[in-house]
Amino acid sequence: MDHTLPNPNCPAQPGDPERRFWLMTTAAASGVAAVATAIPFVSTFAPSERAKAAGGPVEVDISDLPPGGMKTVEWRGKPVWVLRRTAEMLASLQGHDDQLVDPQSLKDQQPAYAKNPARAIKPEVFVAIGICTHLGCSPSKAPKDGNNPSLPADWPGGFFCPCHGSTFDGAGRVFKNKPAPTNLEIPPHRYAGDARLLIGEDAAS
Rank of each mutant, 00 (worst) to 15 (best):
P111M: 10
P111F: 14
A112G: 09
A112T: 15
A112E: 15
Y113G: 02
N116D: 13
N116V: 14
P117A: 09
A118F: 15
A118V: 07
A120D: 05
I121Y: 01
I121E: 06
K122S: 04
K122C: 01
P123D: 14
E124M: 06
F126T: 00
V127Q: 01
V127A: 03
A128Q: 02
I129M: 03
G130W: 01
G130P: 01
G130V: 00
G130A: 15
G130E: 02
I131G: 00
H134T: 04
H134M: 02
L135A: 09
C137W: 03
S138M: 08
P139M: 07
S140H: 06
S140C: 02
K141Q: 11
K141S: 13
A142L: 07
K144A: 13
K144W: 03
D145I: 07
D145P: 04
N148K: 07
N148A: 05
N148R: 07
P149F: 10
S150A: 13
L151P: 13
L151K: 11
P152Q: 13
A153S: 15
A153M: 08
D154M: 12
D154E: 12
D154R: 11
D154T: 13
W155R: 05
W155N: 09
W155V: 10
P156W: 14
G157E: 07
G157Y: 12
F159Y: 15
P162V: 07
